[in-house]
């Protein structure tokens, strides 16, 4: 099976992102594929490169990055949702004249068309909200 995940929850404030990460790991361990991760709504915060945690706590954005890198996953952050929440890559930050950028390079920034494509192309679409 090829899964597409729609992740709507931010790191820590709700459990959605953590649940999605566990699902993704289990799917990959089980020999399934992940067609795309689509971070939307408050889920865009999982792409922040600035999240820091204490030694004894897991770093969710970092864990997502590691999973994406390890399995060469296609991860997309919705540009509109991210921009209005202040999650910007360097290109967007420059274009908008913002003081800094914070979006991890492991995620591509794109539009909702990628969510639609994921829905149409994957075998299963699952929402974590």
């Amino acid at each position: 099976m090829n899964f597409a995940l729609l992740i709507l929850g931010p790191p820590y404030s709700t459990q959605a992102s953590a649940s999605a990460l566990r699902f993704a790991r289990a799917a990959l361990s089980g020999g399934h594929g992940i067609y795309r991760l689509f971070f939307y709504h408050d889920g865009v915060h999982n792409a922040s490169a600035l999240v820091s945690t204490t030694q004894d706590e897991n770093n969710l954005p970092q864990q997502w990055s590691e999973l994406i890198e390890q399995h060469q996953l296609d991860s997309v952050v919705c540009i509109a949702a991210a921009t209005r929440r202040g999650v910007l890559n360097e290109q967007e930050a420059q274009r908008l004249g913002k003081a800094g950028s914070n979006l991890s390079a492991d995620h591509e920034v794109s539009g909702l068309g990628q969510l639609v494509d994921a829905s149409l192309s994957a075998d299963r679409m699952i929402t974590f909200g």
Partner: peptide, 20 residues
Amino acid sequence: VDDAGFVALAAEASAIQSWY
């Protein structure tokens, strides 16, 4: 069920609706 069981349920279903 464990996480693998979750994945299995999702794989065998026709579609998934999340209530949150």
